[in-house]
Write a protein that binds this DNA or RNA. Structure first.
Length: 896
RNA sequence: GCCCGCUUGGCUCAGUGGUAGAGCACUCGCUUCACACGCGAGGGGUCAGUGGUUCGAAUCCACUAGCGGGCACCA
């Protein structure tokens, strides 16, 4: 069962997931402790049309790290997966399919079309669930939900009716954002503003019974056909006399008034604004204020209506624009045309220019819901955003200026609005057709054809997925959830709405914390996007470097935007290989040994220094990683683990253990040393597991261990897996600062000796004589007790440790922290000039440092005002530095 | 227009009042019996600029510049 020299991620990624899933490890039921604390996350449901991208991989990594970590800590843990029906995207997807068969959705009719969507979902929807398994995501598939499931749909109807009965949902005729391409209304959040180079047209409107003309400026001349007034600022002296006058609207036979409205900015354009209440949100408001008619001249297809006049009816809005300009020019009423940059509203999805239209839609009043969310934030600081800056403020500001939410959509795929109309046009809102029939007293009802905004059902996700409106055990156990992990672009669309709906329907916040991840940008700092084609496919990265290495890379992104850097993944791939080979070494020397956590909890004074040291390091690492994860500092946690494993464990502990572990004779010491090494490795694997589930499981299964003893007590009786092992705890009493100090002295000594070897160009194969002088008794004792280790790692032929250093003149020397000195005699080999230069450089560095510190100490204000502790620290450092540079000076003199 | 963030070695990023860090890249040396996806040693930064607060600023404050983000308006 020997391990290969190189870690093969594909091999390790093959079987473990299936086993984890089938053993039920991901379900909270695996936890048998009735008193176990609860940890729950609901996944931000990916679109059913979606395929895994880097953003998902990033979020999923963090959610999985938290979930696996909490599970190993003994929490009753649920990470609930699911998908979103994604109204428009999915409908478009299926519409495109139909197009290939030369069909439109209207050819099929609503019922058949919806059937077709379900069929599409069954056959090709939800690819992402397979991809998530590849990621290692430990979600409970037995609780997978889809927003269009019957029970979630029921929750949607329940919520709708409740809000309607409370007066928070209403049907109204208002100006809305209309996408002429998708043929549906959109909420303000689904509209994106793009800067665009355009023109500003100055049009002249003749004043009735006068030679005067009033000039208005507009970017949309075609809407003039629907003008019902011109507005000026009441304070604008230029137009004072014209207020109340009548204008003859060109190209029509209408007459329109000049009205005064403070909305008008006298500075802009001519200070006179054409007012088109039916086709501009501001004009709509102004129209209401002045009781102006709304003349609809553009229809849902962005074509001119009959009301635009026979010459224009049927023209596309842009063709109509050309024609209006042409006519104005002919009439001599076109004053000028200026280049003008402005931002234009576009459909976020298809980038079609939005047409503001007056339309009857369903809206949700937000004030009451919003106030509850604001109150929660003010009173309980919930949800707690991480990082708090800037998200808490962004969230707060947005809530404050919230407007009504347009919740109806003119689509077929989605939750059809539970409202029915009688023949007389009476509106019946009910939980079902049966209820509506009872209420109406007739069967002759027509259901509203519209569906709800997809985000309406998403807003209910944290409780609808747990069974609401039923009071299910899951709902009681897992709501509120622990944390929401998401990208920043859906804080308004989703996060805030979940908070509001959670408070309304559950009376409690849906989650305690919101962790907002950073964004993975491309290598040039651009956002990855499908249209730009600059996205990196996580699945390809998995193939090339392994899932675990990718996860480490993504976890390191944390909450800051980071450019994609393949080198980073490569370095974590190397790390995985390092882990593999460290385990390989441990296993190659494991005969007779076994993993035994008890071996690491004794504070036996007879333990070797490196053993005391690694136990201390291990406990510190567990402490630090736990602390980092508690604050969602994934980056820090990864760094801590990386350096513990590579630097402490591989570079030093394994090296220092070699003598004992690879001893020829099968003594009990050898077994103990081997067991200790294996046990440290096993603890490290556990700590790494939430980040690197595959390699840790693969190796853990190969270790000589009694698995049932290592499981967290909550999982007693379960078939063993590292993911059910207890996450290492930190025992403060095992943190041994003395051992760390002593070990640091050894590391320092070895490093300085190696430095001399390297600088003096001594071949690695050549053994040297190492002389050590340490006045400090404690230091000397430390060196003496580790002399075999020092000799081996420095590759000495002879090692002498004494109080005083006596070395031949022809030696290379160094002065260590603490004042110890080392020398390597180099009879015939030393280049005195080189050595003098080396030592002088060192001396200059020390002296410069000393001078800096002395200057600081010479400042009376520093001594007076700085904390005594800092002043003492500085004094001690100066003493050490002075001592060391004095030794160097002496050494240099001897070389003269 | 309003609000916010970022600027640290060649690159990608940590750190955040008291001795500048990592990975990669670079230089030198190594088939040292786990690993060349490796081992050992090393070079490289006045922490964007200016001013202020402080005994002390890369870290706090103000301003400037560059980059990025959010919101509002845009007739």
């Amino acid at each position: 069962m020997e391990l290969s020299k190189t870690y093969d991620p594909k091999q390790a990624e093959q079987h473990h997931y299936e086993r984890w899933e089938h053993q039920g490890y991901f379900a909270p039921e695996i936890n048998r402790d009735p008193k176990a604390p609860v940890f729950s996350i609901v996944i931000p449901p990916p679109n059913v049309t979606g395929s895994l991208h880097m953003g998902h991989a990033l979020q999923h990594t963090m959610m999985d790290v938290l979930t696996r970590y909490k599970r190993m800590c003994g929490y009753r843990t649920l990470w609930l997966p699911g998908m979103d029906h994604a109204g428009i995207s999915t409908q478009l997807m299926v519409t495109r399919e139909l197009k290939k068969e030369r069909l439109t959705r209207h050819d099929l009719g609503r019922e058949k079309f919806v059937e077709r969507v379900w069929k599409w979902r069954a056959e090709s929807g939800g690819q992402i669930t397979t991809q998530m398994r590849r990621e290692g995501a430990s979600v409970d598939w037995s609780r997978e939900r889809f927003t269009m499931d019957e029970d979630l749909s029921r929750a949607v109807r329940e919520a709708f009716v409740h809000l309607y009965e409370k007066g928070l949902i209403y049907r109204g005729n208002r100006i809305v954002n209309w996408c002429p391409n998708d043929q549906t209304v959109l909420s303000d959040l689904e509209v994106q503003k793009d800067p665009q180079a355009g023109k500003l047209y100055y049009l002249q409107y003749p004043v009735k019974d006068s030679d005067l003309r009033l000039t208005v400026a507009t970017t949309r001349p075609e809407t003039m056909l629907g003008d019902t007034a011109v507005a000026v600022n009441p304070a604008d002296e230029r137009y004072g006399t014209l207020v109340g006058a009548t204008l003859s609207l060109p190209l029509t036979n209408r007459e329109i008034p000049v009205v005064a409205d403070t909305f008008v900015d006298p500075e802009f354009g001519t200070g006179a604004v054409k007012v088109t209440p039916a086709h501009d949100p501001n004009d709509y408001e102004m129209g209401l204020r002045h009781n102006l008619a709304q003349i609809v001249v553009i229809n849902q297809h962005a074509r001119m209506t009959e009301a635009a006049g026979p010459e224009f009816a049927g023209l596309d809005r842009y063709a109509a624009r050309e024609k209006v300009i042409e006519k104005f020019s002919e009439l001599g009423l076109l004053e000028e045309v200026l280049d003008y940059e402005f931002s234009i509203s576009k459909c976020e999805r298809c980038k079609t220019v939005i047409e503001p239209l007056i339309s009857t839609q369903w809206f949700c009043r937000m004030e009451l819901l919003r106030d509850k969310a604001l109150e929660l934030l003010a009173r309980e600081q919930k949800p707690q955003f991480v990082p708090a800056v800037p998200y808490e403020k962004i969230y707060y500001n947005w809530l404050e200026s919230l407007r009504d939410w347009t919740i109806s959509r003119q689509l077929w795929w989605g939750h059809q609005i539970p409202a029915w109309y009688t023949k007389d046009g009476e509106v019946i809102v009910a939980r079902s057709f049966e209820q509506a029939r009872e209420q109406a007293g007739t069967e002759d009802l027509t259901q509203d054809p519209d569906v709800l905004d997809t985000w309406f059902s998403s807003a209910l996700w944290p409780f609808s997925t747990l069974g609401w409106p039923e009071e299910t055990p899951d709902l009681k156990t897992f709501y509120p959830t622990s944390v929401l992990v998401t990208a920043r672009d859906i804080i308004f669309l989703w996060v805030s709405r979940m908070v509001m709906m959670g408070l309304e329907f559950m009376g409690r916040e849906p989650f305690a914390d919101v962790f907002v991840t950073g964004t993975v940008l491309d290598s040039h700092g651009q956002r990855m996007s499908k249209t730009k084609g600059n996205g990196v496919d996580p699945l390809e990265v998995f193939d090339k470097y392994g899932v675990d290495a990718t996860r480490l890379t993504l976890a390191s992104v944390g909450s800051t935007d980071t450019r994609w850097n393949e080198k980073q993944v490569e370095s974590y791939r190397n790390f995985a290989n390092k882990i593999w080979n460290a385990a390989r070494f441990c296993l190659l020397n494991s005969v007779g040994a076994t993993v035994d956590p008890n071996i690491l909890v004794t504070k036996d004074p007879d333990l070797a220094l490196h053993d005391r040291w690694i136990i201390s390091r291990l406990n510190k690492t567990a402490r630090d990683v736990r602390q980092s994860l508690a604050g969602y500092d994934f980056h820090e946690a990864v760094q801590t683990l990386y350096h513990f494993f590579w630097d402490d464990f591989c570079d030093w502990y394994i090296e220092l253990s070699k003598t004992a572990v690879t001893a020829e004779e099968a003594t009990s010491q050898r077994i103990t040393a081997r067991s200790r090494l294996l046990t440290v490795l096993e603890q490290a694997l556990r700590m790494l597991h939430p980040f690197m589930p595959y390699i840790t499981e693969e190796l853990w299964q190969r270790l000589p261990l009694a698995p049932e003893k290592l499981l967290h007590p909550a999982y007693e009786g379960a078939s063993p897996a590292i993911m059910l092992a207890a996450y290492p705890e930190s025992d403060e009493t095992l943190i041994d600062e003395e051992a760390e100090w002593e070990m640091q002295a050894i590391i320092d000594l070895i490093s300085r000796a190696r430095n001399i070897r390297s600088e003096m160009n001594i071949k690695p194969s050549e053994r040297v004589k190492l002389l050590v002088g340490a006045k400090d008794e404690r230091l000397r004792a430390v060196f003496l007790s580790s002399s075999d280790q020092i000799a081996r790692l420095v590759r000495t032929s002879e090692l002498s440790i004494k109080e005083q250093l006596t070395a031949p003149r022809a030696s290379a020397r160094a002065v260590l922290v603490g004042g110890a000195e080392i020398a390597i005699p180099l009879e015939g080999l030393i280049d005195f000039e080189l050595e003098r230069k080396r030592l002088s450089r060192e001396r200059d560095k020390l002296q410069a440092e000393t001078a800096k510190l002395e200057a600081q100490l010479a400042n009376p204000q520093f001594v007076e005002r700085a904390p005594a502790e800092k002043v003492n620290e500085l004094r001690e450092r100066i003493v050490d530095l002075a001592q060391r540079s004095a030794r160097l000076v002496k050494t240099l003199e001897a070389l003269r």
